[in-house]
Simulated assay, not measured.
Amino acid sequence: MPVTLDPDAAAVYKAFQEAGRPPYENGTPAEARELYLKGRVVSNPEPPELAEVKPLSIPAPHGAIPARIYTPKNLRRADGAAPCLVFYHGGGWVIGDLDSHDVVCRKLAHEGKLIVISVDYRLAPEHKFPAAVDDAISAAKWVAANAKTLGIDNKRLMVGGDSAGGNLAAVVALAARDGDGPAIAGQVLIYPATDFAMAHPSHREPETSILLTHSVIKWFCNHYLSGAADIHDWRASPARANTLVGLPPAYVLTVGADPLRDEGDEYAARLRQAGVPVTYKHFPGQFHGFFTMGKLLNQANVAASEIGVWLKALN
């Protein structure tokens, strides 16, 4: 499928090329993490002013999971409780943290008029699959169990994330449907990774490999998974779940220049076929990762606003 970048996306991509930023797969995970954080500084938009941002510590079997809770000034409450989005950051399960997606979480809290709780799940290769999944599920369970203390309405508890975080959100929704987790009212899947087989056409098309390339995805995969058998586990590849029936309403976002484009599109279609209400938005002229770049790419701000509208309509 031909991809033509929007002018601003093309300009950003050109700037990245001219800067000579080394590919993640040429360095160590620690070097990739540092590089990723530096990129966020120059591309994040100005954050909206919130009522409160506080650290959280979520108990888990292996030890505490760091988290951060965002409360907007325009919070919608009913009987003293507010809707909540549990957010999982992107970064290929190898890079990214609370700081890399801090502005994104602030924007989603403001646009959705809800509480956002960002989860700093364990990263690979120090912690292989399914450590990130275990943390993601544990965090959702803890938020629901402590909803009253947090001022959250656990009937309006949603999950979301971008890329690897979209994968984790989809997996948490599946686990919760099957009894391993709280009831989930909605899922926000921003260019999610859904199938580690990496066999969809968009993985092979050169036009899709802009910032996230097929080779980078393989590098992430090799760090995250322990072997080929993990590919077929629905906790790694949610598209391989036996059925998608009974999942909560979904907002699925994909972009044109993205090796993950086709699997995200297919997952949205399969959700619809399973009877799940789906809002699907495609940004054909943007590349994977654009959502965090609102300072440089206005379409990222448009996407955040549209997700906010969807979240408000949902609850």
Rank of each mutant, 00 (worst) to 15 (best):
A15S: 15
E18D: 14
E18S: 15
G20F: 15
G20R: 14
R21E: 06
Y24A: 03
L37Y: 06
G39P: 07
E49P: 07
E52Q: 12
E52T: 14
K54H: 08
P55W: 14
P55V: 06
S57A: 12
G63K: 11
I65R: 00
R68I: 08
D79I: 07
D79M: 08
G80L: 06
L85W: 00
L85S: 01
G92L: 13
W93I: 05
I95L: 05
L98H: 05
D99I: 15
H110E: 09
H110R: 09
H110Y: 10
L114Y: 03
I115F: 10
I117C: 00
D120M: 04
D120H: 11
D120E: 12
A124G: 08
E126W: 12
P130D: 01
A131L: 11
W142S: 03
K148M: 07
L150P: 02
N154P: 07
R156Y: 01
M158H: 05
V159I: 15
V159R: 02
D162N: 13
S163Y: 03
S163Q: 04
G165F: 08
A170N: 03
A170D: 00
A173D: 06
G181C: 07
G181P: 03
I184F: 03
G186C: 08
G186W: 01
V188T: 12
T194Q: 03
F196I: 07
P201V: 08
I210V: 15
I210K: 09
L211Y: 06
V216I: 15
S226C: 13
D230A: 10
W234M: 11
S237R: 04
A241I: 10
T243C: 04
L247E: 06
Y251M: 06
Y251V: 03
L253G: 00
G256M: 00
R261T: 06
E263H: 13
G264W: 07
E266L: 14
Y267D: 02
R272P: 00
Q273I: 07
A274Y: 00
A274M: 08
V278M: 04
V278E: 06
T279Q: 11
K281V: 13
Q286F: 02
F287N: 04
H288M: 07
G289D: 03
F290E: 01
T292L: 10
M293A: 12
G294P: 04
V302K: 13
A304K: 10
S305R: 14
I307D: 01
G308N: 10
V309H: 10
